[in-house]
């Protein structure tokens, strides 16, 4: 066990620019496990929801992640990448293969809270954007990366779904439906590419302390007319078996493990990382 579990492997993580995000945490854990890591995030001014910023509006976040990965001794590469743009995806994947020669681990993590609204207020654009980021983003990345994995004799695709991929919350319709879809997509990938030695796994984080979760909370607060701090105080930690929110690093470590040979027979799963939120009261 002295050898690093992902030594010599190359991982590609989308949505990795947020300082408190699961993508950044996963990129760092993958690097700690020995992988070279490619990180990407949306770099141009993002779609806005009201007055709240959505994703990284510059690539400063990515530069910091790159520095952190290099600080851990790994090689890193960063791309400003909109996963809903297949041309950009293809270019980034081609550049990655040029640089590293392979991609062993793909963590489709980029997400958007744009689908968090009361159902009757969700516009068709909101629906399509949520679909494009959560589902087509994964489709575009997989179309570009799977042939490389097939050529290398295998790989691991990890898709960041959500506890909302398995159950619903009121006023999370666009998010919930597309995260459900991502689990179906993951199972399809597991079945179609299993014979190529490619594993596909969905992870389903529960309430993790990230900007995205807090943004969802703020949106829900704004819609229900209470302050975010009031809503946070109402957030039912008592419904979580472990009585606390999760940390991004806790999800990141799960991603690193799934990427490793320690999970060599795990495929097609939807794995909850929720502190026991979904198992009862």
């Amino acid at each position: 066990m002295n050898e690093l579990p992902l030594g010599g492997k190359v991982a590609f993580v989308t949505g990795a620019g947020r300082p408190r995000g699961i993508g950044r945490a996963a990129a760092l854990e993958l690097a700690k496990a020995g992988a070279d890591v490619v990180v990407s995030d949306l770099a141009r001014p993002g779609r806005r929801i009201g007055n709240l910023p959505t994703v990284a509006e510059d690539d400063g976040g990515l530069h910091e992640v790159v520095a952190e990965i290099e600080g851990l001794g790994g090689s890193a590469l960063a791309f400003a990448l909109d996963v809903t743009d297949e041309d950009e995806v293809r270019a980034a994947v081609a550049a990655t293969v040029d640089r590293f020669g392979r991609i062993d681990v793909l963590f489709n993590n980029a997400g958007t809270p744009v689908g968090v609204k009361p159902f009757l207020e969700l516009s068709t654009d909101d629906w399509m954007h949520s679909w494009n980021v959560h589902v087509m983003g994964c489709v575009f990345m997989c179309r570009a990366v799977v042939p490389t994995m097939q050529a290398n004799g295998g790989g691991v695709i990890i898709n960041n779904s959500s506890a909302s991929g398995l159950r619903a919350l009121p006023e999370y319709g666009g998010y919930t439906a597309t995260k459900h879809a991502l689990i179906g997509l993951t199972k399809t990938l597991a079945l179609e590419f299993g014979p190529d030695g490619i594993r596909a796994v969905a992870i389903c984080p529960g309430d993790i302390a990230t900007d995205m979760a807090d943004l969802g909370m703020k949106l829900a607060a704004a819609q229900s007319g209470v302050s975010a701090s009031e809503l946070e105080s109402l957030a039912p930690l008592d419904t979580i078996a472990l009585r606390r929110r999760g940390e991004a690093a806790e999800v990141g470590r799960t991603v690193a493990w799934l990427a490793s040979d320690g999970a060599s027979y795990i495929s097609g799963n939807a794995l909850l990382i929720d502190g026991g939120l979904m198992e009862g009261m």
Partner: peptide, 13 residues
């Protein structure tokens, strides 16, 4: 350490 109450298949898909 944030995974609890789960039934995790290890079944090759």
């Amino acid at each position: 350490r944030y995974v609890t109450g789960q039934a995790i298949a290890c079944d090759g898909g």
